[in-house]
Write a protein that binds this DNA or RNA. Structure first.
Lengths: 205, 205
DNA sequence: TGGTTTCGTCCGACCATTTGGTAGGTCACC
DNA sequence: GGTGACCTACCAAATGGTCGGACGAAACCA
């Protein structure tokens, strides 16, 4: 597990990381603006005053959680995807890695995707920049994949795959299947969506 | 276009509907909790006091917008889908109708899907109930479709199709293609995801 | 060893601002 | 002169954030 950005002065930051993690959970559940610092303090068993010993402010907390999520994306999605050159397996790895992430640690990921507009403009730019690297990696791979084996529009295909994967955490809770099965089937659906050609699918097109 | 629920007393409700529509736009952009009644009043060219002539409260406004969105779903997604018996065309119609809705009038739809937890419990139950009708319609059709022509888990497939469609409004803005092309291609991708069988897709499964 | 200073951790009380919502009045028009 | 449509001024509550200090354990010193 990667670490959260360090609070001001703290040699042993286990408590800080724990605070960030627990804050991510409650922020994911209630949403950033609907969650008060008092709520967060309760969730981490502190008073508001005590919480501010670890946190510089509400914005900084949100930004830190998002940076943590971005780190995970870069390490567990982008890196494995870029290790292969074949466009098809690269897309598959991107989808697979992302789905695993959404299932294993959904809270920071959902905060990242759902609370972007709650960021102050400066932070927003930084986060968007790193998010675009991930999106563009997917887009580029889909572009070569689609150019030779499909008639899909690249932007449409990219958007669809992105939201397909980002939505996993919204419904995975109500599913009996285990994580492995979800990852396999989501990945298969994504690849079929990009490359599949059934007569039925053609009929509606 | 269906009408918004009527405000207290109002014989000519064009202004009221306009207020609901404009409020939906700004609520979609900034999120419910991040939008103050003052912001909404500005967006509809009123003062806060004037706004309350039409609106009973912030919660009531949110609930009204969601009811409007639900009406649209029932009329433009559920009704066409239930007109056919064949499971495959029923799923296709559900996806198609939903995608059209997300493109034609995204604001109330996004408010409906993104602000559920901002509802007071009583309203929440009512909305969830109507949403479940839509989801179950999709799920039941996918169930028979998948039982005979795929090995997908019904819940996984349903969740994936739902979030695929719900996410359209998030990326459709940055796409050059026109709405018709988006609808056709999203529908095709959805059906391919459910029924497609490419060798590549099997390889990752 | 016993006292005292230091330091990291955390609390309670407080503050300025913003929030959703209300009350009373104004003004045009029938 | 009554009524619908709207505004100004205001309120109580909640919010993000601050500050001085309390408490305990370690470090230091005798």
């Amino acid at each position: 597990m990667a670490s959260f950005p360090k609070p001001p002065t703290l040699n042993d930051d286990r408590r800080a990381v724990d605070i960030y993690r627990r804050a991510a959970v409650i922020l994911r559940e209630r949403g950033f603006d609907a969650t008060s610092m008092g709520d967060i303090a309760d969730a981490v068993d502190l008073t508001k005053g005590g919480l501010y010993y670890y946190i510089k402010g509400k914005q900084a907390l949100l930004f830190a959680i998002m940076c943590f999520a971005l780190e995970q994306v870069e390490n567990q999605v982008l890196k494995p995807a870029l290790e292969v050159d074949d466009a098809e397996t690269r897309v598959a790895r991107w989808v697979e890695g992302h789905t695993i992430l959404m299932l294993d640690d959904p809270a920071p990921m959902m905060v990242l995707y759902n609370e972007l507009e709650a960021l102050k403009p400066e932070h927003r730019l930084r986060v968007d920049e790193r998010l675009n690297v991930s999106t563009n990696t997917l887009r580029d791979a889909i572009e070569v994949l689609v150019a030779e084996r499909s008639t899909l529009d690249v932007d449409i295909a990219t958007g669809a795959i992105r939201t397909l994967v980002e939505g996993v955490a919204n419904w995975s809770g109500g599913v009996r299947a285990d994580h492995d099965a979800i990852v396999r089937q989501v990945t298969r659906m994504a690849m079929d969506a990009l490359l599949g050609h059934t007569e039925a699918a053609r009929a509606v097109a």
